[in-house]
Amino acid sequence: MDGANLTMPLLSVQRLTKRYGPRIGCAEVAFDLWPGEVLGIVGESGSGKSTLLSCLAGLQRPDEGAILWEGRDVLGFSEAERRRLLRGDWAYVHQNPRDGLRMGVSAGGNVGERLMAVGQRHYGAIRDTATDWLGRVEIAAERIDDRPSAFSGGMQQRLQIARNLVTGPRLVFMDEPTGGLDVSVQARLLDLLRGLVRDLGLSVVIVTHDLAVVRLLADRLMVMKSGHVVETGLTDQVLDDPQHAYTQLLVSSVLQV
C-alpha cells in the first residue's frame, strides 16, 4: 500500500462490451478501481457479471472498450505479457476450487507453483513459504503433502486463495468465492478474506450474487442487470438506500432469518 500511486487508478475500465452473437454479455461497463479498494459486482444469474469478470481477467476478449492497468491497455498486451501479469500482479480465484487447483499435486506444490513460475529454485525456501501461507489460511502444516482431493470444500477454497496470494498480487479477481460452501464455512472464509485483504492492501474485484458477502467485503458496489450496470455507489449506500427498481427488488429479496 505504501508504494501505491494514489493519483492514478490501478485498473480503469472504459466502455467494455462483450456480445455473444446477437445477445449481449455485458455492455458499456466503465469503472475505476483504486489501490486497496474492493469492488463488488452483484446481479442475478445471467446478468453478465461473470462475463465481465472473465473479460477483465483476460480469459475472454471483449468486443469493445479498454482495460487500463496502471495506465497501460491490457488488451494491447502480447500473450506473454498478459500471462506474466496473470501469474504476477494479478490473481484469479475460481468459484470451484477444482478449476483453480491442481488436484493431483500436493497442497505444498499447489502453493509453490506460482513461486516456481516466477523463478524460485530453492526447495527449502519454497516449502517454508508454502507452510507459512497454509498457516495464514488456517490449514494445518502437517497437511502440506496431502492432495487437495483429500481436503474438504472449504479447505480447497482456502488453499486456492493461498495459492493465488503467495506471490503477492496487487489485484485479485474473485468469482463467487463462497459459492457451494455451507454458511458456517462461508462465514469463516469471509472473515479470513477480509483479514487478508486488509492486511495485504489488496485491490479486489469480487463477483457474487450473495449480498451478505459484499456487505462484509466490498467498499463499493456495482449492480448489473441484463448486461448493463444499473446502479453504482458505496456498498452501504446502495444496500441501505437502493435507487433502481431492480436493486430494490434484489435487496428486498434477501431472506431474513
Partner: peptide, 30 residues
C-alpha cells in the same frame, strides 16, 4: 502435469516452465 496440448505448446512458446519444477517438488516432498 498438463494434459492439454494447446496449453503445453503455449507454455513452450512462452517459456513457462515452472510446472516442471512442481513435478520435482512433488518428488522431494514425497
Amino acid at each position: 502435469l498438463e494434459p492439454r496440448e494447446t496449453e503445453t505448446r503455449k507454455m513452450h512458446e512462452l517459456e513457462e516452465y515452472g510446472l516442471m519444477h512442481v513435478k520435482l517438488y512433488e518428488d522431494i516432498a514425497r
